[in-house]
């Protein structure tokens, strides 16, 4: 299991190499990137803030839950960025390896979906004319 929270650019090649495993016939990855618009407003940049110790603890728990649900999982890699990001930057990568492909899709989706629900990381969007903490208000 390789879990990380970093203020440095995420190297996708390195992350995928960490997911490789001789017992795996499938490496599946999800890469989340910064989009240029949000609810119709032009996004200039994003700031990601994390509660580091809890974020790492919760990321480990999500990865462990995935290993319980899919015991055939070989490697699990989750790396999340924090700090200031610009359009096109990689915000998160999830990569998993399994013997066969079906479980790799399912486990990868489970990890990114659960991460978005429980891991204490907050995204502030900066527009040309203002800012918003994403999802803060109904």
């Amino acid at each position: 299991m390789h879990i990380d929270l970093t203020d440095q650019p995420i190297d996708i090649t390195v992350a995928l190499q960490l997911a490789e495993d001789d017992g795996a016939g499938a490496v599946n990855s999800f890469i989340g990137t910064v989009r240029n618009q949000s609810t119709g407003r032009r996004v200039v940049r994003l700031d990601y803030e994390a509660y580091d110790s809890m974020a790492l603890h919760q990321l480990r728990k999500v990865a462990e839950q995935a290993q319980e649900k899919w015991p055939m999982l070989r490697q699990v890699v989750v790396i999340h960025r924090k700090g200031t990001l610009h359009i096109g930057d990689v915000a998160v990568i999830v990569a998993v390896s399994t013997p066969h492909r079906a479980e790799s899709f399912a486990a990868c989706q489970y990890i990114i979906d659960t991460l978005k629900q429980v891991v204490p990381i907050w995204k502030k969007e900066f527009y040309e004319d203002g800012t918003t903490w994403v999802a803060a208000h109904p």
Binding site: A91, K116, V118, P120, W133, A136
Partner: peptide, 12 residues
């Protein structure tokens, strides 16, 4: 205890 307020998360 280490206590923190957690507003709606928006990682990923």
């Amino acid at each position: 205890d280490e206590i923190a307020l957690i507003p709606p998360v928006s990682g990923g």
